[in-house]
Amino acid sequence: MDPAIRLRAVTKTFGDTAAVTDLDLEVPRGSLCGFIGPNGAGKTTTIRMIMAIYFPDRGELEVLGRSRALDAKDRIGYLPEERGLYRKMKVASFLRFMGHLKNVPAAELDRRIAHWLERVELGAFANHRCEELSKGMQQKVQFVAAVLNEPELLILDEPFSGLDPVSTRLLRDLFLEQHARGATILFSTHQMSHAEQLCDRVVMIHRGRKVLDDTLAAIRAQEEPRQLVCEPLADEPDLAPLEGLACAAAVTREGAAVRVTLRAGADPAEALSAVAAALPSRRVELRRATLEDVFVGIVTGEAPAC
């Protein structure tokens, strides 16, 4: 099956600045793909090219089997990072307008608007002007505008920025629901924890170039654990035995826990036994590399500290 998104050697520059350079990307249909990278990495520019808002200087682009996203816009839902509404328009009118633009059948439109406004707990605000809503409420309205056409591909650019934890959870559940429905989701964020919790696949870009592209499981499998965390039985444990271990490069306190960073080449399984023997503990575990560790490692050129 064709991927939902395919980019081949796509390059985009603004003046002398290369925003994206020779980017190859494939997002399989039905996947929930995290698109991560620091601020200014080129995520939004890439997404705008996928959405045919920007046009690449070089390279090929395919979205939902079409060579131009313009031909598939009605099958795509997009929640941009820069969000806005027509402030003077009423919520339902704005959504109706967006539904018309996305060719949602007229007979379906009002039903879907009412349904989605209820889902995002804004049913009572249908006839309020957009400017009367809080920022979080406006963000929910924009999410509704993005999913109103029941898209095959949903692109979310920093969807949780500015949301409180309750709204974040609500929105997260809603877009996981869209994924469960069968929609492909490309989810851009600079918060690695979100991508780690939600995505099955991760693409990482840095300074406009792709530096990582794999499933989350494969990424984790590639990263050898480099840290041990133990929880000593004693309230004030003596760390000297740990510091004397040949496998330990560093020993640090983390609240009630102790973190042991392993020397390069140290065997994690042997280190686990040695640490347990050196410091009586309730728990000793090998810490898996987080996405953030992987990211920092790539960006700084160092191996993830796990």
Binding site: I76, L85, Y86
Partner: peptide
């Protein structure tokens, strides 16, 4: 300036 333009560009071409 109200940033609605990118929301519109998600549904229509420039």
């Amino acid at each position: 300036s109200s940033r609605v333009v990118e929301v519109l560009l998600a549904a229509a071409s420039p």
